[in-house]
Design a protein around this nucleic acid. Structure first.
Length: 423
RNA sequence: GGAGAGGUGGCAGAGUGGUCGAAUGCGCCGGUCUUGAAAACCGGAGAGCCGCAAGGUUCCGGGGGUUCGAAUCCCUCCCUCUCCGCCA
């Protein structure tokens, strides 16, 4: 959420940012409401001042037993009260309208975010490793997974629906191994506190991180109560400290494994075969809470932590930066990490590392005390560390052998009971 | 799921219609004292909103109501605790 004061004083900058994002919002309408709101508040508060003084006087009159005068005073205060009720109601209505606009306004892109029209305009920042060459015909991961009985897509579709794969045998163990490997790396080397949060969150939490109200259609909603299946651990992790004043003298870093649930309406098709796009998938997520002046630097550290996962696994990846048109709703700046998958011959996004500035903190009221003891909004950042399915795709496709087996990276073997190859 | 108790400032905990944004203790910040620290003593200190400011206003779990006036009375929702039931 943007600061209404900021919008008031920088409406041109906000409009320009919306254009760069190819987003729309009624900024002028918002400013008009803001004006009305402040006028109503000012009038209501003046009347309240009067009423408070009058009520105090009535108290004094009652005490000295001057009933007649007290009754007369009551009568006049009552009409004041009626007017105050009307104004308070007005303010409530205007607040509601303002909220309905401002909650739909995306974050301002950072000054350093490149302006662009489409994802084609996302600059590639760096590429690490190289494309492997094969002296046999490479298979796509769905063939490998089927032959080695790692994933059962059909039974997943039967028991739940398409996009809900069942991992079995070594495939299931690989999921568990990857989760443990990544969490161990982040907790023992990157300074994270491991968290196991709920996998469903309430509407306040979803609003705090920006999923609601705009993206309700992307989530699974539990009919019984206002609960949603989490689309990412970012939601419970960030909302851990919603409505709290926390200590961020050093960055507060939490990491969690959770399944993630996404409706992905209309996403089925050729481009999304196998494990490329799912309704339920596993992910390890990292969330940081930092002082505002540290968030840019922390963003670079965070992307490094995510990259470290891929380096340890020996995978070829590249880092791109999202341009204004491709930037997520709540993010001010975002890097994506993409893995090369030779079977499907595509770059696959496995991590999105974002700096949200104070956008989420303002929505979720997450603050810290500055050097003067005054509460200020923190900056939040998060990054996938990393998402499993496409990581598995890259591992299977890059490490496949002519004999149909798949070599496991050394870093994973301790988590696979010493196994060196799948199959 | 049933019955009961309760939700007040960073924490503990008073307050049952007006002088209460709220006693007291702990913790915190500043000062005195001390070589330094502790102790003791003195002083300070909640958050949001409106306002250039002075200042005003709102907030005692959330929402609604009664009243001239609500932390205090009523309704409702949420949460916590205790006991019972059930259960991995």
């Amino acid at each position: 959420m943007l600061d209404i004061k900021f919008i008031r004083e920088n409406s041109d900058a906000v409009k320009e940012a919306l254009i760069n994002r190819q987003a729309e919002a009624d900024v002028d309408g918002l400013l008009e409401l803001d004006l009305l709101r402040r006028a109503a508040i000012t009038e209501a508060e003046e009347l309240k001042t009067e009423r408070n003084a009058a009520s105090k006087k009535i108290g004094a009159l009652m005490k000295e037993g001057n009933k007649a005068e007290a009754e007369a005073a009551k009568e006049s205060v009552r009409t004041l009260g009626d007017r105050i009720s009307v104004l308070d109601e007005q303010v409530r209505e205007i607040d509601e309208k303002i909220r309905n606009i401002i909650l739909y306004i995306p974050n301002l892109p950072s000054d350093t975010t490149p302006v662009g029209q489409t994802e084609e305009d996302n600059p590639i920042l760096r590429s690490v490793g190289e494309k492997k060459t094969f002296d046999f015909e490479v298979k796509p991961h769905w063939d490998i997974a089927e032959e080695l009985k790692l994933v059962d897509f059909e039974r997943g579709a039967k028991i739940t629906g398409s996009g809900f794969p069942v991992y079995m045998g070594q495939g299931a163990k690989l999921q568990r191994a990857l989760i443990s490997f990544m969490l161990d790396l982040h907790t023992s080397e990157h300074g994270y506190t491991e968290v196991e949060p709920p996998f469903v969150c309430n509407a306040d939490s979803m609003t705090g991180t920006g999923q609601l109200p705009k993206f309700s259609e992307d989530m699974y909603h539990i009919a019984d109560g206002e609960l949603y299946l989490i689309p990412t651990a970012e939601v419970p992790l960030t909302n851990l400290y919603r409505e709290e004043i926390i200590d961020v003298e050093t960055p507060l870093k939490v990491a969690a494994y959770t399944p993630c649930f996404r409706r992905e309406a209309g996403a089925a098709g050729r481009d999304n075969r196998g494990l490329l796009r799912l309704h339920q998938f596993d992910k390890v997520e990292m969330v940081n809470f930092v002082k505002p002046e540290e968030s840019a630097e922390q963003h670079e550290i965070l992307i490094g932590e995510a990259e470290n996962v891929l380096q340890r696994l020996g995978l070829h990846y590249r880092v791109i930066e999202l341009c204004t048109a491709d930037l997520g709703f709540s993010a001010a700046k975002c890097y994506d990490i993409e893995l090369w998958a030779p079977g499907v011959e595509r770059w696959l996004e496995v991590s999105s590392v974002s700096n949200f500035g104070d956008y989420q903190a303002r929505r979720a009221r997450i603050r810290f005390r500055d050097e003067n003891g005054k509460p200020q909004f923190v900056h939040t950042l998060n990054g996938s560390g990393v998402a499993l399915p496409r990581l598995v795709v890259a591992l299977l496709e890059n490490n496949q052998n002519a004999d149909g087996t798949v070599t496991l990276p050394e870093a994973l073997r301790p988590y696979m009971s010493g196994l060196e190859r799948l199959g």
